[in-house]
C-alpha cells in the first residue's frame, strides 16, 4: 500500500493542476511540500514505515502469539518435548522472516512504482541513501514491536494488545509534539525517518539504545513468561 500511496503523491506533486482536473484531489487540497523525485519519494516510504509500519508489525506479532490464546490452543504447546523456549523463539523467527520479506517486498515495489510514475533519474547516492533510511527505519520499527508478543501473551489474545498498539501510536505522536519523542522507543523510528528526510539526524545513542533494550526486554520477558507463568486458562 505504502509504495502505491507514495507513487500517487509523486504524481500529484509533479502536476497538482492535472491532479485537480482529474479529480484525484480536491481543488482546496493543501499539497505536500517537496518535489517529485526519488529522494522525496524514498523519504515518504521511510516516514510511512516509521508510523504505519509499527502498527502493522505489532499486529503481525500479536496475531502470531495471541492466536494461541484466542483459539485456546496454547495448552497443547505447554507440555511437549519441544520446549516452550523453542516454541517462543520459533514464533519470533517467523515474525522476523515475515517482516524481512515485507521489507524486501516494499523495497522492490517502491522501486517499481517509482519507475512506473516516471520519477526523474537520480544519482545512485540518492537511491542508496533513500533505501538505507528506509531499511534502518524498518529495522527499528520491527525490533521495537517485539514487546507486543508479551502483551498478547499476558492478556491472552488479540484485543487488549491491539488496543495497546493504538494507545502507543497516539502516545508517540503526543510525545514527539512535546519534544520527548527521542526517549520514547515507539517514536524513534518515525523521528529517525523525518530527521533523515531533512538531512539532519540528531538522534543520539540513547534513543537507539532505548529501542534495542525495549525490543530485547520484550523478547526476554515473553520467553520468561511462557516458561514460568501459571497457565491456568
Amino acid at each position: 500500500m505504502l509504495p502505491l500511496a507514495g507513487g500517487l503523491f509523486m504524481i500529484i506533486l509533479r502536476d497538482p493542476e492535472l491532479a485537480r482536473k482529474a479529480g484525484i484531489i480536491s481543488a482546496k487540497a493543501q499539497i505536500l511540500t517537496g518535489s517529485a523525485d526519488w529522494g522525496t519519494y524514498l523519504n515518504f516510504l521511510a516516514q510511512g514505515t516509521g508510523i504505519g509500519g509499527f502498527a502493522l508489525c505489532s499486529f503481525i506479532l500479536i496475531w502470531i502469539f495471541g492466536r494461541e490464546f484466542s483459539d485456546r490452543t496454547v495448552k497443547d504447546l505447554l507440555a511437549l518435548p519441544t520446549s516452550r523456549t523453542v516454541i517462543v523463539l520459533g514464533k519470533f523467527v517467523v515474525f522476523l522472516v515475515w517482516s524481512a520479506l515485507l521489507v524486501v517486498w516494499a523495497c522492490l515495489l517502491g522501486l517499481l512504482v517509482g519507475a512506473a510514475v516516471n520519477l526523474p533519474p537520480a544519482p545512485a547516492s540518492v537511491l542508496i541513501q533513500g533505501l538505507l533510511t528506509f531499511l534502518v527505519t524498518a529495522l527499528l520499527t520491527v525490533w521495537v514491536s517485539l514487546p507486543f508478543a508479551l502483551a498478547a501473551s499476558v492478556w491472552r489474545g488479540y484485543l487488549a494488545a491491539a488496543g495497546l498498539t493504538f494507545l502507543v501510536v497516539i502516545l508517540a505522536q503526543v510525545l514527539v509534539i512535546l519534544g520527548w519523542g527521542e526517549y520514547f522507543p515507539w517514536a524513534v523510528a518515525a523521528l529517525y525517518a523525518f530527521q533523515a528526510a531533512e538531512g539532519n539526524v540528531s538522534l543520539g545513542g540513547v534513543s537507539y539504545g532505548i529501542v534495542i533494550l525495549t525490543g530485547l526486554a520484550g523478547a526476554v520477558c515473553t520467553l520468561l513468561w511462557w516458561e514460568l507463568a501459571d497457565q491456568s486458562r
Partner: peptide, 17 residues
C-alpha cells in the same frame, strides 16, 4: 526438562487450529 515425550494429555475442552 520433563518427560513429555512419554506423556500424552488432554486438558479441559479440546481445541485445534
Amino acid at each position: 526438562a520433563k518427560p513429555w515425550d512419554k506423556v500424552g494429555y488432554l486438558v479441559e475442552t479440546p481445541e485445534a487450529y
